[in-house]
């Protein structure tokens, strides 16, 4: 097989993947919900945790469904591969070398508050997952 043929095949596979990904992606724009964002800010304050973004910015990031946080929360109970994969990403490093470290207790507390505010049904599963982790004061806030 000539190199040219290889490049053509690789190019064709990439083109097909691009078409599939463009065709299947959900382009829906999440609804903003500033009321929920305000609830989250209040929850941070009640827990004594700092928050740097206002309700409008949080609403943009979390929408009305908790965005990526609640998506991850929904995946945790159903997929052990997801849990294994997420555990692989708690750490530091580069592309090849990646080492598990200790997660910050306050950071996890903040994530749990997002789950509690936006997708409370998932809270027991996420809490169950988090309870299996050894947390530490890492960020010092």
């Amino acid at each position: 097989m000539s190199h040219r043929t290889i490049y053509i095949i690789v190019g064709a596979v990439v083109a097909v993947l691009l078409v599939v990904m463009l065709a299947t992606f959900d382009y829906g724009t999440p609804n903003k919900d500033e009321a929920k964002a305000n609830d989250l800010i209040a929850a941070y304050q009640d827990a004594g945790l700092t928050n740097r973004l206002d309700a409008e910015q949080l609403a943009k990031l979390l929408g009305d469904d908790g965005g990526a946080v609640c998506q991850a929360a929904a995946d945790l109970p159903s997929g052990h591969a997801v849990r294994g994969y997420v555990k692989l990403r708690f750490g530091v490093g580069g592309e090849f070398y990646f080492r598990p470290t200790r997660l910050d207790r306050n950071l996890v507390a903040r994530s749990l508050l997002i789950v509690k505010t936006y997708c409370p049904d998932q809270l027991p599963d996420v809490r169950n997952f988090v309870d299996g982790l050894r947390l530490a004061d890492v960020n010092g806030d």
């Binding site: 949080l58 943009k60 990031l61 990526a68 991850a72 990403r89 708690f90 950071l107 994530s111």
Partner: peptide
């Protein structure tokens, strides 16, 4: 914010949030 990526640790989730902004 860190708490929005700590549990997912996903680059696509981070990109998605940035692109949505």
């Amino acid at each position: 914010p860190a708490e929005q990526i700590s549990l997912t640790a996903g680059v696509m989730q981070a990109f998605s949030a940035v692109l949505a902004h």
